[in-house]
Write a protein that binds this DNA or RNA. Structure first.
Ligand SMILES: [Mn+2]
Ligand SMILES: [Mn+2]
Ligand SMILES: [Zn+2]
Ligand SMILES: [Zn+2]
Lengths: 139, 139
DNA sequence: ACCTTTATGCAACAGTGTTGCAAATATTAA
DNA sequence: TTAATATTTGCAACACTGTTGCATAAAGGT
Protein backbone atom coordinates (compact mmCIF):
# COMPACT_ATOMS: atom_id res chain seq x y z
CA UNK A 1 0.00 0.00 0.00
CA UNK A 2 1.70 3.15 -1.18
CA UNK A 3 -0.96 5.53 0.04
CA UNK A 4 -1.45 6.83 3.55
CA UNK A 5 -4.41 5.39 5.47
CA UNK A 6 -6.26 8.67 5.00
CA UNK A 7 -5.74 8.59 1.23
CA UNK A 8 -6.72 4.94 1.14
CA UNK A 9 -10.00 5.74 2.88
CA UNK A 10 -10.66 8.60 0.53
CA UNK A 11 -10.02 6.47 -2.54
CA UNK A 12 -12.64 4.06 -1.28
CA UNK A 13 -15.18 6.82 -0.91
CA UNK A 14 -14.98 7.05 2.86
CA UNK A 15 -14.44 10.12 4.96
CA UNK A 16 -11.22 10.17 6.94
CA UNK A 17 -12.10 9.82 10.61
CA UNK A 18 -10.10 8.91 13.68
CA UNK A 19 -11.91 5.62 14.15
CA UNK A 20 -11.39 4.48 10.59
CA UNK A 21 -7.72 5.39 10.62
CA UNK A 22 -7.25 3.51 13.88
CA UNK A 23 -8.92 0.37 12.54
CA UNK A 24 -7.08 0.48 9.23
CA UNK A 25 -3.75 1.00 10.97
CA UNK A 26 -4.47 -1.90 13.31
CA UNK A 27 -5.13 -4.22 10.38
CA UNK A 28 -1.87 -3.11 8.76
CA UNK A 29 0.05 -3.54 12.02
CA UNK A 30 -1.31 -6.98 12.78
CA UNK A 31 -1.36 -8.41 9.25
CA UNK A 32 -3.92 -11.05 10.09
CA UNK A 33 -7.65 -11.52 10.21
CA UNK A 34 -9.24 -9.91 13.24
CA UNK A 35 -12.63 -10.27 14.87
CA UNK A 36 -14.60 -7.36 16.25
CA UNK A 37 -13.72 -8.56 19.73
CA UNK A 38 -10.00 -8.63 19.02
CA UNK A 39 -10.08 -5.16 17.50
CA UNK A 40 -12.12 -3.90 20.41
CA UNK A 41 -9.51 -5.19 22.84
CA UNK A 42 -6.63 -3.75 20.82
CA UNK A 43 -8.29 -0.36 20.54
CA UNK A 44 -9.47 -0.12 24.14
CA UNK A 45 -11.50 3.02 24.68
CA UNK A 46 -10.12 4.72 21.60
CA UNK A 47 -13.25 3.71 19.68
CA UNK A 48 -16.73 2.87 20.84
CA UNK A 49 -17.87 -0.72 20.41
CA UNK A 50 -20.89 0.14 18.25
CA UNK A 51 -18.84 2.54 16.18
CA UNK A 52 -16.31 -0.22 15.58
CA UNK A 53 -19.08 -2.40 14.16
CA UNK A 54 -20.05 0.47 11.89
CA UNK A 55 -16.46 1.04 10.79
CA UNK A 56 -16.19 -2.65 9.88
CA UNK A 57 -19.46 -2.45 7.95
CA UNK A 58 -18.31 0.56 5.99
CA UNK A 59 -14.96 -1.13 5.30
CA UNK A 60 -16.63 -4.27 4.02
CA UNK A 61 -19.09 -2.33 1.87
CA UNK A 62 -16.38 -0.19 0.34
CA UNK A 63 -13.97 -3.03 -0.42
CA UNK A 64 -11.38 -2.41 2.28
CA UNK A 65 -11.88 -5.62 4.23
CA UNK A 66 -13.57 -8.92 3.53
CA UNK A 67 -15.29 -11.34 5.83
CA UNK A 68 -13.49 -14.56 6.71
CA UNK A 69 -15.92 -17.34 7.67
CA UNK A 70 -15.02 -18.88 10.98
CA UNK A 71 -16.28 -21.83 12.95
CA UNK A 72 -16.26 -19.95 16.22
CA UNK A 73 -18.41 -17.40 17.91
CA UNK A 74 -17.70 -14.42 15.75
CA UNK A 75 -16.75 -13.62 12.20
CA UNK A 76 -13.32 -12.30 11.33
CA UNK A 77 -12.26 -9.60 8.88
CA UNK A 78 -9.12 -9.23 6.82
CA UNK A 79 -7.74 -6.50 4.63
CA UNK A 80 -8.60 -6.88 0.98
CA UNK A 81 -5.73 -7.40 -1.39
CA UNK A 82 -6.40 -4.08 -3.10
CA UNK A 83 -8.51 -4.85 -6.13
CA UNK A 84 -11.79 -4.70 -4.19
CA UNK A 85 -14.31 -1.90 -4.41
CA UNK A 86 -17.82 -1.21 -3.31
CA UNK A 87 -18.88 -2.76 -6.63
CA UNK A 88 -17.24 -6.09 -6.06
CA UNK A 89 -14.92 -8.06 -3.87
CA UNK A 90 -12.17 -10.17 -5.43
CA UNK A 91 -11.01 -12.16 -2.46
CA UNK A 92 -11.38 -15.68 -3.73
CA UNK A 93 -8.28 -16.70 -1.91
CA UNK A 94 -7.36 -19.18 0.75
CA UNK A 95 -7.30 -18.64 4.50
CA UNK A 96 -5.44 -20.53 7.16
CA UNK A 97 -6.42 -20.79 10.79
CA UNK A 98 -4.15 -22.21 13.45
CA UNK A 99 -5.75 -24.76 15.75
CA UNK A 100 -3.45 -23.77 18.56
CA UNK A 101 -3.16 -19.99 18.67
CA UNK A 102 -6.38 -19.37 16.75
CA UNK A 103 -4.87 -16.79 14.44
CA UNK A 104 -6.21 -16.58 10.91
CA UNK A 105 -4.15 -15.40 7.98
CA UNK A 106 -4.82 -14.80 4.31
CA UNK A 107 -2.79 -16.87 1.84
CA UNK A 108 -3.13 -14.76 -1.30
CA UNK A 109 -0.31 -16.68 -2.98
CA UNK A 110 -2.19 -19.98 -2.75
CA UNK A 111 -4.22 -20.60 -5.89
CA UNK A 112 -7.78 -21.74 -5.33
CA UNK A 113 -8.46 -24.52 -7.83
CA UNK A 114 -11.77 -24.72 -9.64
CA UNK A 115 -13.97 -27.57 -8.53
CA UNK A 116 -16.64 -29.30 -10.52
CA UNK A 117 -20.07 -28.75 -9.01
CA UNK A 118 -23.60 -29.91 -9.84
CA UNK A 119 -25.15 -28.01 -12.73
CA UNK A 120 -28.16 -27.12 -10.60
CA UNK A 121 -26.01 -24.79 -8.51
CA UNK A 122 -24.93 -21.39 -9.74
CA UNK A 123 -21.64 -20.89 -7.92
CA UNK A 124 -20.49 -17.30 -7.61
CA UNK A 125 -17.68 -17.41 -5.10
CA UNK A 126 -15.61 -19.81 -3.09
CA UNK A 127 -13.91 -19.67 0.26
CA UNK A 128 -11.32 -22.23 1.29
CA UNK A 129 -10.42 -22.35 4.97
CA UNK A 130 -7.42 -24.47 5.90
CA UNK A 131 -6.80 -25.48 9.47
CA UNK A 132 -3.70 -26.79 11.13
CA UNK A 133 -0.69 -25.37 12.91
CA UNK A 134 1.08 -22.17 12.04
CA UNK A 135 4.81 -21.52 11.88
CA UNK A 136 4.92 -20.61 15.59
CA UNK A 137 2.67 -23.37 16.86
CA UNK A 138 3.82 -26.35 14.79
CA UNK A 139 4.44 -29.24 17.22
CA UNK B 1 -28.40 -44.81 7.15
CA UNK B 2 -29.72 -48.31 7.67
CA UNK B 3 -30.00 -48.04 11.45
CA UNK B 4 -32.74 -46.42 13.46
CA UNK B 5 -31.86 -43.11 15.10
CA UNK B 6 -31.71 -44.86 18.46
CA UNK B 7 -29.25 -47.43 17.19
CA UNK B 8 -27.23 -44.74 15.49
CA UNK B 9 -26.91 -42.86 18.77
CA UNK B 10 -25.91 -46.02 20.57
CA UNK B 11 -23.26 -46.87 18.03
CA UNK B 12 -21.73 -43.48 18.63
CA UNK B 13 -21.61 -44.06 22.35
CA UNK B 14 -24.52 -41.82 23.22
CA UNK B 15 -27.56 -42.67 25.30
CA UNK B 16 -30.83 -42.63 23.47
CA UNK B 17 -32.82 -39.69 24.71
CA UNK B 18 -35.85 -37.86 23.41
CA UNK B 19 -33.89 -34.69 22.68
CA UNK B 20 -31.19 -36.47 20.72
CA UNK B 21 -33.68 -38.45 18.68
CA UNK B 22 -35.57 -35.26 17.88
CA UNK B 23 -32.45 -33.46 16.72
CA UNK B 24 -31.15 -36.40 14.72
CA UNK B 25 -34.53 -36.88 13.05
CA UNK B 26 -34.69 -33.20 12.20
CA UNK B 27 -31.31 -33.34 10.49
CA UNK B 28 -32.45 -36.37 8.49
CA UNK B 29 -35.75 -34.70 7.57
CA UNK B 30 -34.18 -31.44 6.48
CA UNK B 31 -31.07 -32.79 4.76
CA UNK B 32 -29.20 -29.55 5.08
CA UNK B 33 -26.94 -27.74 7.50
CA UNK B 34 -28.82 -26.19 10.40
CA UNK B 35 -27.92 -23.60 12.98
CA UNK B 36 -28.89 -23.83 16.61
CA UNK B 37 -31.44 -21.11 16.00
CA UNK B 38 -33.06 -22.96 13.09
CA UNK B 39 -33.24 -26.17 15.07
CA UNK B 40 -34.65 -24.32 18.03
CA UNK B 41 -37.42 -22.90 15.85
CA UNK B 42 -38.18 -26.27 14.27
CA UNK B 43 -38.32 -28.01 17.63
CA UNK B 44 -40.31 -25.37 19.44
CA UNK B 45 -40.74 -26.28 23.09
CA UNK B 46 -39.94 -29.93 22.50
CA UNK B 47 -36.39 -29.31 23.66
CA UNK B 48 -34.89 -26.68 25.88
CA UNK B 49 -32.55 -24.19 24.26
CA UNK B 50 -29.58 -24.98 26.50
CA UNK B 51 -30.18 -28.70 26.12
CA UNK B 52 -30.14 -28.25 22.36
CA UNK B 53 -26.70 -26.68 22.61
CA UNK B 54 -25.62 -29.67 24.66
CA UNK B 55 -27.09 -32.14 22.19
CA UNK B 56 -25.17 -30.44 19.38
CA UNK B 57 -21.98 -30.55 21.42
CA UNK B 58 -22.39 -34.26 22.10
CA UNK B 59 -23.16 -34.89 18.42
CA UNK B 60 -20.08 -33.03 17.31
CA UNK B 61 -17.85 -34.77 19.85
CA UNK B 62 -19.12 -38.21 18.94
CA UNK B 63 -18.88 -37.76 15.18
CA UNK B 64 -22.56 -37.41 14.33
CA UNK B 65 -22.44 -33.84 13.05
CA UNK B 66 -19.69 -31.51 11.98
CA UNK B 67 -19.44 -27.77 12.15
CA UNK B 68 -19.87 -25.80 8.92
CA UNK B 69 -18.11 -22.43 9.11
CA UNK B 70 -20.42 -19.60 8.18
CA UNK B 71 -19.96 -15.91 7.62
CA UNK B 72 -23.06 -14.99 9.58
CA UNK B 73 -24.03 -14.71 13.18
CA UNK B 74 -24.05 -18.35 14.14
CA UNK B 75 -22.32 -21.55 13.17
CA UNK B 76 -24.16 -24.30 11.35
CA UNK B 77 -24.04 -28.06 11.79
CA UNK B 78 -24.52 -30.86 9.30
CA UNK B 79 -24.78 -34.61 9.59
CA UNK B 80 -21.52 -36.41 9.09
CA UNK B 81 -21.27 -38.76 6.15
CA UNK B 82 -20.90 -41.75 8.43
CA UNK B 83 -17.20 -42.39 8.74
CA UNK B 84 -16.76 -39.95 11.61
CA UNK B 85 -16.22 -40.94 15.22
CA UNK B 86 -15.26 -39.32 18.47
CA UNK B 87 -11.67 -40.05 17.47
CA UNK B 88 -11.76 -38.16 14.22
CA UNK B 89 -13.94 -36.37 11.75
CA UNK B 90 -13.57 -37.06 8.03
CA UNK B 91 -15.66 -34.29 6.57
CA UNK B 92 -13.19 -32.68 4.25
CA UNK B 93 -15.93 -32.05 1.79
CA UNK B 94 -17.44 -29.05 0.11
CA UNK B 95 -20.39 -26.97 1.28
CA UNK B 96 -22.64 -24.71 -0.70
CA UNK B 97 -24.57 -21.78 0.68
CA UNK B 98 -27.27 -19.98 -1.25
CA UNK B 99 -27.00 -16.20 -1.24
CA UNK B 100 -30.76 -15.88 -1.59
CA UNK B 101 -32.46 -18.39 0.71
CA UNK B 102 -29.44 -18.81 2.97
CA UNK B 103 -29.64 -22.60 3.03
CA UNK B 104 -26.40 -24.51 3.31
CA UNK B 105 -25.94 -27.99 1.92
CA UNK B 106 -23.15 -30.53 1.94
CA UNK B 107 -21.74 -31.58 -1.43
CA UNK B 108 -20.09 -34.88 -0.53
CA UNK B 109 -19.79 -35.81 -4.19
CA UNK B 110 -17.60 -32.79 -4.95
CA UNK B 111 -13.94 -33.65 -4.61
CA UNK B 112 -11.84 -31.18 -2.68
CA UNK B 113 -8.59 -30.74 -4.59
CA UNK B 114 -5.30 -30.56 -2.76
CA UNK B 115 -3.73 -27.12 -2.77
CA UNK B 116 -0.09 -26.30 -2.46
CA UNK B 117 0.59 -24.35 0.73
CA UNK B 118 3.68 -22.78 2.31
CA UNK B 119 5.95 -25.31 4.02
CA UNK B 120 5.81 -23.33 7.25
CA UNK B 121 2.17 -24.30 7.73
CA UNK B 122 1.12 -27.74 8.90
CA UNK B 123 -2.29 -28.14 7.28
CA UNK B 124 -4.54 -30.73 8.89
CA UNK B 125 -7.93 -30.07 7.36
CA UNK B 126 -9.67 -27.99 4.75
CA UNK B 127 -13.12 -26.56 4.39
CA UNK B 128 -14.38 -25.19 1.10
CA UNK B 129 -17.50 -23.06 1.20
CA UNK B 130 -19.07 -22.22 -2.14
CA UNK B 131 -21.61 -19.42 -2.42
CA UNK B 132 -24.11 -18.68 -5.12
CA UNK B 133 -27.68 -19.59 -5.95
CA UNK B 134 -29.31 -22.92 -5.32
CA UNK B 135 -31.60 -24.88 -7.62
CA UNK B 136 -34.68 -23.07 -6.25
CA UNK B 137 -33.25 -19.59 -6.14
CA UNK B 138 -31.30 -19.45 -9.40
CA UNK B 139 -32.24 -16.20 -11.16
C1' DA C 1 -36.57 -52.53 41.68
C1' DC C 2 -32.33 -50.12 42.82
C1' DC C 3 -28.22 -47.62 41.97
C1' DT C 4 -25.25 -44.87 39.31
C1' DT C 5 -24.43 -42.10 35.54
C1' DT C 6 -25.86 -38.96 32.30
C1' DA C 7 -29.21 -35.65 30.35
C1' DT C 8 -32.61 -32.07 30.95
C1' DG C 9 -34.91 -27.73 32.30
C1' DC C 10 -34.41 -23.55 34.30
C1' DA C 11 -32.21 -19.42 35.39
C1' DA C 12 -28.52 -16.43 35.32
C1' DC C 13 -24.84 -14.66 32.88
C1' DA C 14 -21.20 -12.91 29.34
C1' DG C 15 -20.43 -11.97 24.56
C1' DT C 16 -22.14 -10.59 19.82
C1' DG C 17 -24.47 -7.69 16.81
C1' DT C 18 -28.18 -3.93 15.85
C1' DT C 19 -30.53 0.39 16.30
C1' DG C 20 -32.42 5.24 17.67
C1' DC C 21 -31.00 9.44 18.91
C1' DA C 22 -28.39 13.50 20.23
C1' DA C 23 -23.82 15.42 20.00
C1' DA C 24 -19.53 15.79 17.47
C1' DT C 25 -16.93 15.86 13.36
C1' DA C 26 -15.90 16.06 8.35
C1' DT C 27 -16.85 18.03 3.99
C1' DT C 28 -18.86 21.54 0.94
C1' DA C 29 -20.34 25.91 -0.23
C1' DA C 30 -20.47 30.59 0.81
C1' DT D 1 -13.04 31.62 7.54
C1' DT D 2 -17.37 30.84 8.46
C1' DA D 3 -21.71 28.70 7.90
C1' DA D 4 -24.59 24.99 6.21
C1' DT D 5 -25.00 20.14 5.36
C1' DA D 6 -23.96 15.36 5.49
C1' DT D 7 -21.85 11.82 7.92
C1' DT D 8 -19.94 9.64 11.99
C1' DT D 9 -19.66 8.92 16.83
C1' DG D 10 -20.91 7.71 21.63
C1' DC D 11 -24.28 6.11 24.43
C1' DA D 12 -27.95 3.33 25.83
C1' DA D 13 -31.14 -0.10 25.09
C1' DC D 14 -32.16 -4.22 23.04
C1' DA D 15 -32.36 -9.11 20.86
C1' DC D 16 -29.78 -13.06 19.89
C1' DT D 17 -25.88 -16.48 20.77
C1' DG D 18 -23.51 -19.44 23.65
C1' DT D 19 -22.10 -21.12 28.53
C1' DT D 20 -22.69 -22.67 33.19
C1' DG D 21 -24.47 -24.24 38.01
C1' DC D 22 -27.73 -26.67 40.03
C1' DA D 23 -31.76 -29.42 41.11
C1' DT D 24 -34.65 -32.85 38.90
C1' DA D 25 -35.54 -36.42 35.58
C1' DA D 26 -34.43 -40.06 32.74
C1' DA D 27 -31.34 -43.89 31.00
C1' DG D 28 -28.78 -48.05 31.41
C1' DG D 29 -26.71 -51.62 34.14
C1' DT D 30 -27.16 -54.61 38.39
MN1 LIG E 1 -8.46 -12.82 2.89
MN1 LIG F 1 -20.72 -31.54 5.66
ZN1 LIG G 1 -0.58 -20.75 15.79
ZN1 LIG H 1 -31.62 -20.76 -2.35
Amino acid sequence: MTETPAQYLHHHGLRKTLGRELVLTTFLDQSRALSHGELNTLLGDQLNRASLYRVLQSFEESGIVHRVPDDEVSVKYALCSGACSSEQHHDNHVHFKCNHCGETQCLPEVKLPKVKTPDSLKVESAELLLRGYCRHCAA
